[in-house]
Amino acid sequence: MGKLFDSIDDSLQAWIEAQPMWFVATAPLGAEGHVNISPRGHDSFSVLDGRTVAWVDYTGSGIETIAHLRENGRVCLMFNSFGPRPRIVRLHGRGTVSLPGDAAFEEVVALHPEHPSTRAVITVEVTRISDSCGWGVPVMELTGERDLLRLQAEKKGPDGMSEYRVEKNTMSIDGLPGLSMLPA
């Protein structure tokens, strides 16, 4: 195995979209900065065309992905099968951040169920598409998605989510700017 692809065709798109969890890796430019890897899930990911993907980014306890993308744009997405047929797919590219009111934000958010924790949309222009064997990934069974993200956002309400974003999403752990106050 180990193949490079020219683009995300229908078959690869179907496989990517079937994965219930995927990972986002970014890093700041400075050597002293922290590399970040974040898991993602829920119905939030879209293949927009053969070289463009995007996801709805939910409010979290940090802002590393957005801060790194705003600084340098570099990103790698990794999808892997936990089912009986092993496979890993990596999408390398340059990511941008869109906020509520931006056309790209509205386009991608409309493709997915409404979520009270939505804070941004990340769009990636994919520059390299590859797969590898995944033989070292365990076989695991999906029992369901967690609803804690939605429940927390609903409990906080719009004003509470705005306050949380100001507290947790303004600056990265390395001191890079994240997001200024966002509407809920």
Rank of each mutant, 00 (worst) to 15 (best):
M1N: 06
G2Q: 04
K3I: 13
I8K: 01
I8Q: 03
D10C: 06
Q13L: 03
W15P: 00
Q19L: 04
F23L: 13
F23A: 09
T26P: 01
L29E: 13
R40K: 15
G41M: 10
H42R: 05
L48G: 02
R51N: 14
R51S: 14
T52F: 01
T52I: 00
V56L: 00
S61C: 05
I63R: 09
I63K: 08
A67L: 09
A67N: 09
L69Q: 05
E71L: 06
N72M: 01
N72E: 07
R74M: 10
C76Y: 04
C76W: 03
L77H: 02
S81I: 04
F82Q: 06
R85A: 11
P86G: 02
R87C: 04
L91V: 07
T96M: 02
S98L: 01
S98R: 07
P100L: 00
G101L: 00
D102T: 01
F105G: 04
E106R: 08
V108T: 05
V109N: 03
V109A: 12
E114H: 11
P116E: 12
S117I: 04
A120S: 15
V121P: 03
I122T: 00
V124G: 04
E125K: 14
T127G: 15
T127H: 15
I129W: 03
I129C: 07
D131N: 05
S132Y: 04
C133R: 06
G136R: 14
V137C: 09
V137W: 04
P138K: 07
V139C: 05
L142I: 09
D147E: 09
L148F: 13
L149V: 15
L149I: 15
L149F: 11
L149H: 13
E154N: 07
M161I: 13
M161H: 06
R165A: 10
M171A: 06
I173M: 14
I173Y: 11
D174S: 11
G178P: 10
L179T: 06
M181A: 15
P183C: 05
